[in-house]
Amino acid sequence: MEYVFYGIAVSCLILSWVKDRQKTLKGLRKAWKSLEAILPQLLGILLFTGIVIAWTNPETISRVIGVKSGWLGTVGAAVVGSLTLIPGFVAFPMAAMLLTNGAGYTQIAAFVSTLMMVGVVTFPMERMYFGTKVALVRNLLAFLFSFLVAGVIGWVHGM
């Protein structure tokens, strides 16, 4: 499943190679150039994420989101979600674990939503592509929107 994109990319590459070698080489050169343009950021993000995640283990996070942590817990959850960059297949089981440990649905929703939509760590990269204004406003709106999501999900689960 994880390698499905390799399958698609390689199939397209072969098809392209058969149709036009020159064009394919040009495409690969472009692929490399655009990767090389963001490689420094990617490597920086990699190290940064490692350091931050090593710091914020599930225990730290559950202390913030905690049992019945209320509004402050929701804000804390949203801040943690914005600052961290955890792949979904790690984050969802972790969130499920926090739920069984007594964290509220509202807090978990704030965490999940900001985790996916808000990227403080990737901000420099986003800024490079879209400029400061777009990167700032998009992240800010996504952050605020996550509170709406958190509120509705808390309400739905309380019914």
């Binding site: 698609i8 394919t24 690969l28 994420t49």
Partner: peptide
């Protein structure tokens, strides 16, 4: 762990972007 995640998604994405660009 994150490096492995990057290696799973980043190269195919860039290959597809490059091919999309020329084709």
């Amino acid at each position: 762990y994150s490096l492995k995640e990057m290696l799973i998604v980043i190269p195919p994405i860039f290959i597809l972007v490059g091919l999309f660009d020329v084709w």
